[in-house]
Simulated scan of single mutants.
Amino acid sequence: MSIPLENKPVIGFTCGDLNGIGIELILKSLSDNRFLDFCTPVVFASNKAINFYRKSIGDLNFSFASIKDFYKLNARQVNIFNCWEEEVAINPGTLNDTGGQYAIKSLQAATTALKDGKIDALVTAPLHKKNVQSADFSYTGHTPFFKDFFGVNDVLMLLTAENLKIGLVTEHLPVKEIAAHITKENIISKLLILNASLRKDFNIEKPKIAVLALNPHAGDEGLIGTEEEEIIRPAIKEAKQRNLLVVGPFSADAFFARGQYNKFDAVLAMYHDQGLIPFKSLAFGEGVNFTAGLPGIRTSPDHGTAFDIAGKNKADPSSFRAAIFSSIDIINNQKLYEENRKNPLTRMSANVVAGAVDEKISE
């Protein structure tokens, strides 16, 4: 099954750190021309950067059309939107300012296109948080950048896989600062975004959400921490009053060890490693990072720049491909959600097109 050309979504791709594995992941993923049956890809980079990595990969069936504006999109090829023309030294595996500088050029051009409606979704390749820092970019990652760029009050970093979804109350913070950011207001805000995203982006009509505790053993009734009794339980209570189906707080170790996550549509973790360690253990290679709460769709793989294997043709594109599939799924789910809002009697499967994509690529 393929989608008529006029109905195909336009999916944008950032190149990530020029010295990382981002462009290799893009080339390996989009060299499978069956993707062109379901989307029109636009890579925000430069022809020269693409050709540099294309030569390093070797036997690769990858061709592209070079564009400088969106009036010349080729629906039957990968499109390279040239964000720069100058020669750039690429040194795979090297952490330097150049890799970060051009990663941000790509990111800003692609995010502008997403905000302006030129693309329907954006898949971001990994960047390195240290070498992107500048007067114009002082963010600890993609998520806070997108929050500011779109001017929204809050967003949620949501890690998704086939049967596991984990959102984070806090993201990239030093451990000593986490507790100060665990507030009733922050938890409720994340729960509201998570609940809305599960309904709109993942076609789950009545989501069941588990909330993890902050302290070991959920604080043991205040013996080893009071955040559960003073902050997390009141937040859950208020969320229930807002008609959310929320349960917790659960002690994180027992929650995952006993497989309790299988009983819920999503989990809200209090901090990065509490959520990411079990997620990557249970779903590594198929995990996707989705920024919930934006007016646009952004996904990414669940790993970093991998400088140790950059330029060696060793990068595994599985998670990157999953991010592409996820972006298409979410586009279709959002369309279905809007249709159902207009006509509540219409109930269709949100996975018809997504299933066709999976079947086509798996052949």
Rank of each mutant, 00 (worst) to 15 (best):
V42S: 08
N215F: 04
E6G: 15
K280E: 04
L60D: 01
T346M: 15
I297T: 04
M270K: 14
A210P: 12
L198A: 15
A315W: 12
S46M: 07
F52K: 08
Y261E: 00
L95T: 06
Y271K: 04
K165Q: 03
A161S: 06
K165G: 11
G22D: 01
K129M: 01
V42H: 03
F290D: 03
S197C: 10
D308I: 04
I236L: 07
H217F: 13
G16T: 02
D220S: 14
R341S: 11
N82S: 10
L336R: 04
S134I: 02
E286D: 09
S362T: 14
I309E: 02
P278K: 08
A65W: 13
M348L: 14
G58L: 05
S251V: 02
A266S: 14
Y102F: 09
F256G: 07
D59T: 03
H128E: 01
Y271R: 06
I324D: 08
L5A: 10
T183E: 05
V43N: 04
A125Q: 11
M348V: 03
T94Q: 13
N289Y: 06
N203S: 14
K314L: 12
F146M: 05
D253K: 12
V169W: 07
G99M: 05
T40V: 14
L168H: 03
K147E: 02
S63P: 10
M1C: 11
S300R: 09
L345S: 13
A283T: 11
L212S: 00
N7Q: 09
D116L: 14
G16L: 01
I178Y: 12
K147W: 10
N91K: 13
F146V: 00
T140G: 10
I224L: 15
Q334C: 05
S349M: 06
A103S: 04
Q334K: 12
A161N: 03
S46E: 05
N313K: 11
A269D: 00
I90A: 13
F35E: 03
F284R: 11
N61L: 12
I236Y: 08
Q133G: 12
I309G: 06
E6V: 14
T98L: 08
N47G: 10
S197R: 00
Q77P: 10
I119F: 13
F44A: 03
L245G: 09
I90K: 10
N33G: 09
H181I: 01
I328M: 08
M157C: 15
L114P: 04
S189V: 05
P207D: 02
S326I: 05
A257Y: 09
A125T: 11
A196T: 06
T291W: 07
V169L: 08
M270E: 00
L164S: 00
P216E: 00
Y53D: 01
E286F: 11
F146S: 01
V247I: 10
G248R: 12
L345G: 05
I178K: 09
I104V: 15
H303L: 06
P278R: 09
N343A: 13
G167K: 01
L194S: 02
N153R: 12
F64P: 05
E227G: 03
T170C: 07
G16A: 10
A350M: 07
N340D: 15
